[in-house]
Computed example of a mutant assay.
Amino acid sequence: MAAEAHELTPHVAISRVIMLVNPLSGSVGPRAAGEAEAILADYGCDSSVVALEGGRFDAQISEALDAKPDVLFVLAGDGTAGTIASRAGPDGPLVAPLPGGTMNMLPKALYGTADWKLALRRALEEGAPQSVAGGEVSDGAFTQSFYCAAIFGSPALWAPAREAMRTGKLKLAWLHARRALKRAFSGRLRFSLDARPERRAEALVLISPMISRAMEENTGLEAAAMNPSDAMEAFRLAAHAVMDDWRQDPAVTTRATQKVAIRARSRIPAVIDGEPVQLRHTAGVRFIRKAFRALAPVPPAAEDSV
């Protein structure tokens, strides 16, 4: 006798679901596609699970978007999930970025867990459409959206070292760390927030409203300027940057912004939603109030206001 289907969320009609899975990403693994199929089978909707293949990512994403599902679930790293959300845009299908990467900042903010199976069930059973804000970085030749955070300046050079250390490549981690040390304090950024007078900083961090602890929803990006006075202070900031509320550090100043201009004497190292890039010596960032629509449980504060 077939088991009774679990009830789908009452907040939005869901009849067609597509789930994209990158088995090589972060915490996903080769069995994830099969496990996802088993979970989706518990719900009364037409669903298909697609394992992303190297060299076919772009085509598979296009095919999924062209199919116009009610919800497009993504189990992949932050960068892949962000790319898919950007392509869906505010007028595309609902997107549910499940925690399949390393940091999983956006999935944790949306679903309150780093367990992708639990996040999947929460989205299916409690999800409602939510507009997600973000930012867009452009240097004239390169454009990329972000929904968590973007880091500009020499501290961004530590990202490759951190990633190499995470994957156990100690020699490569040391080489990246040595390069970061050589670049540190070689030249400060100059930046302007909302066309105000230029300021200088060792690094600038822009944080989306979804992630920020300081911003009200969708009022702008949180801009945090880092100005360590020496190498030891910079190391202290680096140590607190991920785990602690480093905005309380006296070497960090924050404010809300919707448009940012950045320049430097040389190429600008950056980390955009966990992906390291090298930008040209000038770049701009703009706030996007409605970047895409997510399927996620309504936050308690929003429920109380209804």
Rank of each mutant, 00 (worst) to 15 (best):
A114P: 00
A114R: 13
D115L: 06
D115F: 04
D115T: 04
W116V: 05
W116N: 06
W116I: 04
W116Q: 09
W116F: 11
K117W: 03
K117V: 00
K117T: 02
K117L: 02
K117H: 12
K117P: 00
L118F: 00
L118W: 00
A119D: 12
A119P: 10
A119K: 07
A119T: 07
L120Y: 06
R121W: 03
R122G: 00
R122L: 15
R122M: 13
R122K: 15
A123I: 02
A123F: 05
L124S: 11
L124G: 08
L124W: 10
E125V: 02
E125S: 13
E126F: 10
G127L: 06
G127W: 03
G127D: 05
G127V: 05
A128G: 10
A128D: 04
A128M: 05
A128C: 08
A128W: 00
A128E: 14
P129T: 08
P129G: 06
Q130I: 08
Q130K: 06
S131Q: 12
S131L: 07
S131H: 10
V132R: 02
V132Y: 02
V132H: 03
V132D: 01
V132Q: 02
V132W: 02
V132S: 01
A133R: 02
G134P: 02
G134M: 04
G134T: 03
G134W: 01
G135A: 03
G135C: 04
G135S: 04
E136K: 09
E136M: 08
E136R: 14
V137A: 00
V137G: 01
V137Y: 02
V137T: 04
S138F: 03
S138N: 13
S138C: 06
D139T: 12
D139L: 04
G140N: 03
G140P: 02
G140S: 04
G140M: 01
A141L: 02
A141C: 00
F142C: 01
F142Q: 04
F142D: 05
F142I: 10
T143Q: 11
T143K: 05
Q144D: 00
Q144S: 05
S145D: 00
S145L: 01
Y147T: 01
Y147D: 00
Y147H: 10
C148K: 02
C148H: 12
C148R: 06
C148T: 12
C148Q: 09
A149G: 01
A149R: 10
A150E: 01
A150P: 06
A150V: 14
I151T: 12
I151H: 14
I151K: 07
I151R: 12
I151L: 15
F152I: 09
F152S: 10
G153S: 08
S154Q: 07
S154V: 14
S154L: 01
S154N: 10
A156F: 12
A156N: 12
A156T: 13
A156Y: 13
L157W: 06
L157K: 15
L157F: 07
L157H: 14
W158R: 12
W158L: 15
W158E: 07
A159R: 15
A159K: 15
P160W: 10
P160G: 11
P160Y: 09
P160M: 11
A161G: 14
A161C: 13
A161R: 13
A161M: 14
R162S: 14
R162G: 05
R162W: 07
R162V: 11
R162C: 07
R162N: 11
E163C: 01
A164C: 12
A164N: 12
A164M: 13
M165F: 13
M165C: 04
R166N: 13
R166V: 09
R166A: 15
T167D: 11
T167V: 15
